[in-house]
Amino acid sequence: MSFAAISDWHQRASHGRKRRRRLAWRRFCRNGLPVIGLAYIALLFIVAIVGPFVTRQPTVNIFQANLSPSWAHPFGTGQYGQDLLTQIVRGLGGTLLIGVTGAAISVAIGLIVGIAAGVFGGIIDAVLMRFTDFAFSIPTLIIALFIVVVTGFSAWNVGLSIGLVTWAGCARMARGLALSVRNGTLMDSAILAGGSRWYIATRYVLPQIASNMIVFFVFQVASVLFQSTTLIALDPQYVPLTGGQLPPGSNLLLNLLNGGGGSYIGYRWLFWFPLGVYCSMVIALLWIGDGLQALLNPQQPLPRRWFATWPRLRTARGARG
């Protein structure tokens, strides 16, 4: 005896694609921070790509050592008189490369392991998950450090080594998502329609968990960057006293980070500028990740717009909770 016409709030004819897109953009923007983060990261990528063509390799000039920031050297100069800005600009590309490579490798391995475990189930699931548990409890950075030693120090290898050991979190998350897709009725219909495992994994599971994986990827880039700073700090060989000559292929922003106490007292710019660039980069990534996450949870209520256009409401009682 219940109503025949039970309506749906959300599915209305007036909800066009344009409207949905605008809503998605507003969800992403939330309080403006994700947009700032996105713009900042885009700027860093442009600088990293264009920078090496515009700037020259920082030259050693003993007579210009440890100069404080000036118009000629906006970020000051290092111990041997190299321009710090040039060093940062040229080191940016390798650093971004570490983050993107590491995150891409770990997400790729994690996705394969997680989806295989989730879709096939049974003994494959059990074996892969025990393997993931094992990967969770190994000292990841020691193995990454060893891989770097064997393969040689470069941005590619650092990213590769960290990616190879940090896939466990992604695998566990992908398996959980794949299981939730598998237990839904959509999967039953796919099996009834005669879809093979491979077809189900690539056409049903992957598209549904792809959005979550993109969010995970953004956070993973930040995580890989943090781990690579720790990896590089574990090894004094590649951390020359600030501004020292770097081995070829290792001119990373991250190398400038571990400046040590000496530069903090006398030559503060050598400490704060690289650290500032690094931290702002990571925080911008976290903001983008937060914005994407808000995009994925449409149920989450949005905070009030900063520049609200609707009329001020006369309220008898404010919002609670």
């Binding site: 930040a222 943090f226 700073t229 720790t230 700090a233 980070l257 571990n258 400046g259 040590g260 106490g261 903090y264 007292i265 400490f271 650290l275 690094y278 931290c279 990571v282 925080i283 976290l286």
Partner: peptide, 18 residues
């Protein structure tokens, strides 16, 4: 606090000491 978590520990040690 989130920012603190992103500062590399080697630099954090220097900042804290100073």
């Amino acid at each position: 606090c989130v920012l603190l978590g992103q500062v590399p520990p080697a630099d954090m040690a220097v900042i804290l000491i100073f």
